[in-house]
């Protein structure tokens, strides 16, 4: 008989992963602001680690550019640094170190060096933190050659994604954690929200997951998304199925850059309609690239994009709710597309 599963949150999964990987590999170092115990980081992802590994958890001054630069140096010297940027909004301060240093070194030095660096950072809004603590800026780093961008979601296993990111040596990784994801339980196949879905995951270290309703004969729409917005997309899809008998497939990306499109294209070939859902601003977003690639590969499909309005994210809930894409917006767009 199966034991009752202990529901792990995404936060616990990530925290465990850091613990495991630091236990296994003494080349792994953590750097960041306010990451020492008892505080353990602004969102507690690093809690317990400085107590366990005092020599390898380094609390830094408020110097985002230098700590990413220093981590570049650690990585070039063969260590595996993991930097926490306290809020994703602050990655703008690290852009030079990411774009002109970390992501370039391997290619620019003719493949003679490796930069196994992971930059973890919480992005996203819906917590009333206002214009400079709520953004989803990962789109600014999509298309940077030599950089991988990874975003965990609530499908198993966010911690595994982080462990893989830290252990690999191929290229630096920006690891984007949505703040609201931290308290989400890691879903279990065949249970709860997932019980209606058949799930196929692509091979490779940062898989793309395709969710199909097991009972559906034909799905009419593919929803492409990543990170926390999978929560909204999934709930919208469940409502559409139960209330309107409209079945969607959901394609959840773990890797945002480089773009790996095959699983999505397979789904679109079945549904002939694509709705992208992301929390970054609408213009020149992740969805724009996804839609462009889909349209190039599969002619005459319907496409729409759900994203944040091109505005700063307001503090007030009544404004923030309107600025960020909602479950209702996803449903509305979906209904509009299939009818």
């Amino acid at each position: 008989m199966k034991n009752t599963p202990i529901m792990l949150t995404v936060l616990e999964s990530l925290n465990n992963a850091l613990l495991q990987v630091m236990e296994k590999d003494d080349r792994v170092y953590l750097l960041g602001e306010d990451i020492l115990d008892p505080y353990g980081g602004a969102f507690k992802v690093t809690r317990g680690l400085s107590t366990r590994f005092p020599e390898r958890v380094l609390s830094t001054p408020i110097s985002e550019s230098a700590i990413v630069g220093i981590s570049n140096g650690l990585a070039l010297a063969g260590l595996h640094p993991v930097v926490e940027i306290m809020f994703g909004d602050f990655v703008t301060l690290t852009a030079d170190q990411i774009i002109n240093h970390a992501a370039k070194f391997r290619w620019m030095y003719n493949d003679q060096v490796r930069v196994p660096l992971v930059i973890r950072t919480p992005m996203g809004g819906r917590r009333g933190y206002g214009p400079t603590h709520s953004q989803s800026l990962e789109k600014l780093f999509l298309g940077v050659p030599g950089l991988r961008v990874v975003a965990p979601n609530s499908l198993p296993d966010p911690g595994k994604l982080l462990e893989t990111a830290i252990s690999q040596e191929e290229r630096p990784i920006l690891f984007v954690e949505h703040k609201l994801l931290y308290t989400c339980p890691v879903l279990e196949y065949g249970l709860g929200d997932l019980q209606d879905f058949e799930i196929v995951s692509s091979a490779g270290p940062f898989p793309t997951h395709t969710l199909k309703f097991s009972s559906a004969e034909k799905s009419k729409l593919t929803i492409a998304t990543y990170g926390y917005n999978f929560e909204l997309a999934r709930k919208a899809a469940l409502e559409l199925a139960y209330e309107d008998e409209i079945f969607c497939e959901i394609v959840v990306f773990s890797q945002l850059n480089p773009f790996e499109m095959d699983p999505l294209f397979e789904s679109i070939r079945r549904t002939r309609a694509l709705l992208t859902v992301e929390e970054g601003t609408f213009t020149l977003g992740w969805g724009a690239e996804v839609v462009a690639r889909a349209a190039e590969a599969i002619p005459s499909i319907k496409v729409r994009r759900a994203a944040a309005l091109d505005l700063p994210i307001a503090n007030s809930k009544s404004l923030e709710e309107k600025i960020l894409p909602s479950q209702e917006l996803i449903k509305e767009l979906a209904l509009d597309m299939v009818n």
Partner: peptide
Amino acid sequence: FFTNGIQGGIVPVASGMALAKKKL
């Protein structure tokens, strides 16, 4: 021996390599 064409950006990178040397 490493060089890069961005003024100042190499300074934290060199510091990080110094940190690695110290840790090792």
